[in-house]
Amino acid sequence: MKCKVIYFGLIAEKLAFDSEEIVIETDIFDKSNLELSFKKRHIQLTEMTFKTAVDGVLTNKIDTENQSQIKEIAILPPFAGG
């Protein structure tokens, strides 16, 4: 099952795209550490600060039993501008 990944702010800018489709089973190498998985997936993110959310809930993990149900992962950097 494909899952949509949405990238925000500076991260989308670094990657030069703001979303992509992935297959969780094969594209996420460590389901218990999404931040690390995305840093491995995209070298531009290695030193960046961000949090991950799965289907609208902040978490760094994927529940492997229900991974085929996941529709969306959001990659959230902090913003400082005011």
């Binding site: 500076l10 030193e47 960046m48 600060t49 949090k51 902040l58 959230l76 950097p77 902090p78 400082a80 501008g81 005011g82």
Partner: peptide, 18 residues
């Protein structure tokens, strides 16, 4: 609870610069 630590790399980014 959202962002536990202050970012280092991105800390120079603000409206004046970006």
């Amino acid at each position: 609870c959202l962002f536990p630590e202050m970012p280092v790399k991105e800390s120079l980014t603000n409206c004046s610069l970006s």
